[in-house]
């Protein structure tokens, strides 16, 4: 459904993506893991054209696009088929939860107001926030804001949703509610590409795990393969590092 081939991106003379290939099939939950600075965020941002890749190809629903030459219209059309969930939620501060969710329907897709409203309420219900529809972002907790952001992403019925570390900005006790929502989406068959540091989640929910380091995909496979028998030394190193951090050895 979505395929990226040989994506390259530099900031100045620093090469951040050095030829990344990624494939997402319909219904897949692909998680991307890797050390800080490996280019995971940049990868998602290039896929949604928030940054311009300098080289590479995208195949979306069988249509080929040249990443460095794609036009404005194609970008707009592709964005309407995808959703994006940011690390810091990025809710519209001047809109209520419901307005945040319906904005993309009413403004970008010209869906009639009452239709958008009922779709919006349904999306909010899915993330457990129908009762906070009229709250402004500053009246919501981080976890609630992120759930509104997820509702905003799903309400347009995208073919794939990109998540960039959706729980990293949250207090630990709020992480669970967001992961739960994502788990439910996965169970419903939503196609998702998720950058995350939540290894448990990456392992239990993903159908496919991608390990990135220094701007390259080092290794990918089913979660069992990556987490139990990684082939690459760098993957093992990274997983060891994460495990040490999450469960510090007793003194």
């Amino acid at each position: 459904m979505l395929e990226i081939k040989n994506m390259k991106k530099s900031f100045g003379d620093m090469e951040v993506l050095r030829g990344v290939d990624i494939k997402v099939e319909k219904g897949d939950v692909v998680t991307v893991i890797g050390p800080s600075g490996s280019g995971k965020t940049t990868l998602l941002r290039c896929i949604n054209f928030l940054e311009r890749a300098k080289e590479g190809e995208m195949i979306f629903d069988g249509v080929h696009y040249q990443l460095n030459a794609i036009g404005r219209k194609d970008i707009a059309a592709l964005r309407k088929k995808t959703g994006f969930v940011f690390q810091n939620y990025n809710l519209f501060r001047n809109k209520t939860a419901l307005q945040n969710v319906t904005e993309g329907l009413v403004v970008a897709r010209k869906v009639p107001k009452d239709e958008a409203r009922s779709a919006g309420l349904k999306a909010l219900e899915k993330v457990g926030l129908a009762n906070r529809a009229d709250a402004y972002p500053h009246q919501l907790s981080g976890g609630q804001q992120q759930r509104v952001a997820i509702a905003r992403a799903i309400v347009t019925e995208p073919e794939v949703i990109f998540f960039d570390e959706p729980t990293s900005a949250l207090d630990p006790e709020l992480v669970g509610e967001v992961l739960n929502v994502m788990r439910n989406l996965a169970a419903e068959g939503m196609t998702m590409l998720i950058v995350t540091h939540e290894m448990q989640f990456a392992r239990n929910v993903a159908s496919h795990v991608v390990f990135m380091d220094q701007g390259l995909v080092v290794e990918e496979g089913r979660p069992e393969e990556i987490f139990e028998s990684p082939r690459e030394a760098r993957t093992r190193q990274f997983l060891q590092f994460i495990m040490d951090r999450e469960a510090p050895a007793p003194q």
Binding site: L50, R79, F86, E103, A108
Partner: peptide, 10 residues
């Protein structure tokens, strides 16, 4: 917020 706007298709 501007990026989020683009991402919802505005």
């Amino acid at each position: 917020q501007i990026e989020a706007g683009y991402c919802v298709g505005m």
